[in-house]
Nucleic acid binder design. Structure first.
Lengths: 207, 207
DNA sequence: TCCTTCTGTCACCGATCGGTGACATGTGGT
DNA sequence: ACCACATGTCACCGATCGGTGACAGAAGGA
């Protein structure tokens, strides 16, 4: 909100790479603030303090700009598994909780997830594919050489818990709760996380 | 060219109640088709085949129209518990699966849920409050006189599973899957539902 | 120096948005 | 008959949308 003046007609950085980066960061800020609604070349250009024409000239359109933005956001975690010790259930619980914290403090990712549930453009598909791939690369590390208990469809169960985490995070951010469960304070989230841990323990062993 | 047109402007039902109902049904159709995006007085009026002016005159605006529409959609299930027999886990599993089927075949409700995750208007809050209330009224019936196992935060666990169901339903409708789990065919959903059942059984007893 | 290319700026277009005033027409009361 | 009112129709407004053409200035090679 502070910066960007332009009284004289000629007075810009004249640096394409820097300008492109400004657009990318501006797009992320707009999404974080307003979500998918109200997302357009006019808003992004105003946020970047540059002219929308450059979006078309440099990126070829809004979609390609968003793709470039999504590519930058392709390394969410990676930290969560710094010490991959403990049993399968312990490792998975740890990475799950770390991911939950990360997601809850990342409004851009939240808006992106919400957008994926409302629309289905090719751009969104590509962004989601990149994220899924990163997730897939992570799984062997958490799995290690251990096998999940028999009779348990681990991919399905993990998808369920991840889906619940996504949904509750988004509901907490917008409605402040879900299904009678409040999701505002830190205590609320600790209660929810405790329930998640219980489900994980009951599924993968209570170690 | 003085004076032109104004010949036959007369041909309507001239029935306020019927027209209001046309608007409500048109709003539901627009939401089912296009979701929250592109939802406006122009689209609804065109879908209803009536003039948008009447939306303001009869409802007082778009928000009130959507509220009226949401009020009509306040009786999702109720059938699911026709035979409330079996243990707590069995009853809950039954109503859960019935709700899943219902949700998966109701595009309006899906778009409404997705909308709630992206925005947070007062109108959405009211609609959600009505739905939550209906859910609350249902719980005593499924709970009966039985108590959930100790050490289990039943409201939290149920919220988690419901959240997962919502999220996976929406992802199945838009992206066709989530977290590597395909959610397109009936077999895909049976696999997911089997995992849900497993979680319910491990939580509430495998009866 | 001149000329070309790239970066940035601005004005403008057509389409569409939400919202409203003016008006024609049907209906019912007296 | 007349009149008051409710219903429906249409044209129009200002704002905003995505998108583009025309132009000014800076950089760099010859």
């Amino acid at each position: 909100m502070p910066d960007r003046k332009k009284a004289p007609p000629a007075k810009a950085t004249r640096d394409r790479e820097a300008t492109e980066q400004r657009f990318i960061e501006a797009a992320a800020r707009v999404i974080a603030r307003d979500g998918a609604a109200g997302l357009g070349v006019n808003a992004i250009a105003a946020e970047a303090g540059a002219d929308k024409k450059l979006i078309y000239r440099y990126f070829g359109g809004l979609d390609r700009l968003l793709e470039a933005m999504g590519a930058n956001t392709a390394l969410w975690l990676g930290h969560a598994l710094s010490a991959p010790q403990g049993s399968y259930g312990e490792r998975l619980t740890r990475v799950f909780l770390a991911y939950a914290d990360n997601l809850r403090s990342d409004p851009v990712l939240q808006k992106l997830l919400a957008w994926e549930l409302a629309s289905s453009s090719d751009t969104l598909r590509r962004i989601d594919a990149a994220r899924s791939k990163a997730m897939y690369m992570l799984m062997p590390k958490v799995r290690g050489d251990e096998k999940p208990p028999e009779g348990v469809d681990a991919p399905a169960v993990n998808a369920i818990l991840l889906a619940a985490l996504h949904y509750m995070t988004l509901r907490g951010a917008t409605m402040g709760g879900f299904s009678g469960l409040s999701l505002k304070t830190e205590a609320d989230w600790q209660r929810a996380m405790s329930a998640f841990k219980g489900l994980l323990e009951r599924t993968y062993g209570n170690d």
